[in-house]
Design a protein around this nucleic acid. Structure first.
Lengths: 335, 335
DNA sequence: TCATCAGAGTGGAACGTTCCAATTTGAGCG
DNA sequence: CGCTCAAATTGGAACGTTCCACTCTGATGA
């Protein structure tokens, strides 16, 4: 009982027009009289016609499909970013193909090749750690429009937070609270993000005439906890953390060592993931609105696709400081 | 400088075989001599041939693409599930089309229609709250293979946790710790999930000859906090929470009221999201391994696609109890 | 009356695969 | 040597759109 699929041809016959007329009508082309268009639309619904994008794709070369390479979707920050991308692409009439690279450059590579075959109209990449710098060249050679998100290549379309401005904000806030021994926690893995965040902190310290100090650790709650647990009263009184996960870990480590974040040591995170507000104590952090970044990324890529010859856009979004309790500002005010 | 795209035809000419031979070779068909296959493969790499799936899709009707409708991807539980789905589909040679319905039945409907046009070989659905029950019928009428994930329709392919068994485990654990006044927190929105979780708790209480009590709240940290804050010493000594988010909220509320989770009131969550282990205090919860559910869901759907006439599979995965500190078991042991 | 033109609709080739039936090749055997 | 059969290869028609060049119709104006 395999039923015959309805094609434009059938709609055309039903409406009593030529195939190409029906096709134009279904695309709502203004070349046709409104009357004709309506007749075709009605015939289509009467027959239960379903547009077949794969056929259109083949002929027109446009798939209305974008590949999204997420470096780690189980990270809430990237999950929200993904939601923003998907929403914006959907609004523009595009479908999102998802690939979670789980920070594997090999998997990333595989998925890119798959996207190329699919084929997608463009890709959005959050480069996995260890991505070879040659990747940008290669994508260009493939003729595949792309934009980087959050983490960037040296050039090319991009959307992401202003990392430098973020840690500057954090550092200046801690300085204003009277801290002098402020350390930067994190950034063991080099990337455009960690460099930017380190620089924002280091420059703010330099401007204040203070020495910068980096406590290396990878972006991992457990590792950050270990480092923080080892800090003594002689160490820094405040930590600018690479991101919220690191800050969460640092808070855990401090508590294990019997020191209370926000009272004994000030803590500032970066990202403002959903959990930051609900942590104990609530985390002071830099908000970068992942959802907004995702939308910006979609915009930037679609622009690249629409105007391949124009200069690639770079959207660097300004972060804001969200003051909660882990920096001690509330207690200080109360006192 | 628009370069000519390489097609199978070109590869065939380069390798000195017929078009259809080259096509077979590229699909690694065993009908061909190994020697021929190698020659064609070499010609393909020499020319930089890229397979065009959209053409294949059109002719064969198989897109090797699956639509994934996530009810809320910013929820860490569903994010991990998504990662599991994507990984399993990728392994099976499928690409994942993502749509985040953000719990909107309207958006869900729109995305389903888009997937149908795309076209995808099947869809994986985590029905948004408020999904009309007729949806299952409609999908069947469309001839679109589907499987539900976590939340289910009455029948049809499905993969999800054994909710009843989960809350039974949680309740029995609290009973074993000596609690008698145990309440269920959450489940204000009716769904297959909340019914199952409530029943598991209620039956365990009934078996112990105790009265069941439901503290209604929606799945929202703030709302759960509010309810928990209002509990007095006369109230329940232990809470079986609808999920981890609710448990986090309950913990916050209790702390605000000056009561410590794990010491003054026992708390058990459900899901074991990544944050559960790092919460303060670390959350005792029911682990359902979202990643595993995602993989199971992919399997179930692919089976449905491969054997449309077979009985749809239903995978109900057994949960496990993860004992941490919020239930007070550790303190009890230490004492 | 007839050329001109714009608007509305048409016909058929293309897109790059897969599928199927048909053909060629070569080994084995009497 | 000719016959048979399986294995290897081939040719060409689909698949359902879009694209482009073309035709038809009726209005306009000289």
């Amino acid at each position: 009982m395999k039923m015959h699929r309805i094609r434009i041809k059938d709609v055309a016959r039903e409406a009593g027009v030529a195939l190409s007329t029906a096709a134009l009508a279904l695309r709502d082309d203004s070349k046709l009289r409104e009357e004709t268009r309506r007749a075709v639309r009605e015939a289509a619904t009467r027959l239960g016609y379903v547009y077949d994008r794969s056929a259109a794709m083949m002929r027109s070369g446009k798939s209305h499909t974008i590949g999204l390479l997420v470096c780690e979707i189980t990270n809430p920050f990237y999950a929200e970013l993904t939601a923003g991308v998907e929403e914006a692409l959907d609004e523009a009439g595009y479908v999102t193909m998802l690939a979670n690279t789980a920070e594997s450059a090999v998997r990333q590579r595989r998925m890119l090749e798959r996207f190329r075959e699919q084929p997608v109209d463009g890709v959005l990449i959050m480069p996995a750690t260890g991505t070879p710098t040659a990747l940008a060249e290669e994508l260009k050679a493939w003729g595949l429009p792309y934009a980087t998100v959050v983490r960037s290549f040296r050039r090319g379309a991009h959307a992401g937070p202003d990392n430098r401005a973020g840690t500057r904000l954090a550092t200046e806030h801690l300085l204003a609270l009277g801290h002098r021994r402020i350390a930067f926690l994190g950034g063991a893995l080099k990337s455009s993000v960690s460099t930017g965040r380190w620089e924002g902190y280091a420059r703010a310290m330099a401007r204040a005439g203070l020495a910068a100090e980096q406590l290396l650790c990878r972006t991992d709650i457990g590792e950050a906890a270990l480092v923080a647990e080892g800090l003594t009263a002689k160490g820094p009184t405040a930590l600018v953390c690479f991101n919220d996960s690191v800050a969460f870990g640092a808070g855990m480590g401090l508590m294990r060592a019997g020191r209370m974040p926000g009272r004994d040591v000030a803590l500032v995170g970066f990202d403002d993931v959903r959990e930051a507000a609900h942590w104990y104590p609530p985390l002071t952090t830099i908000r970068v609105a992942p959802h907004v970044i995702g939308q910006a990324a979609a915009r930037v890529l679609l622009h690249r696709i629409a105007e391949p010859d124009a200069e690639p856009l770079r959207e660097v979004l300004p972060p804001t400081l969200v003051i909660r309790e882990s920096c001690g500002a509330q207690q200080r005010r109360a006192a």
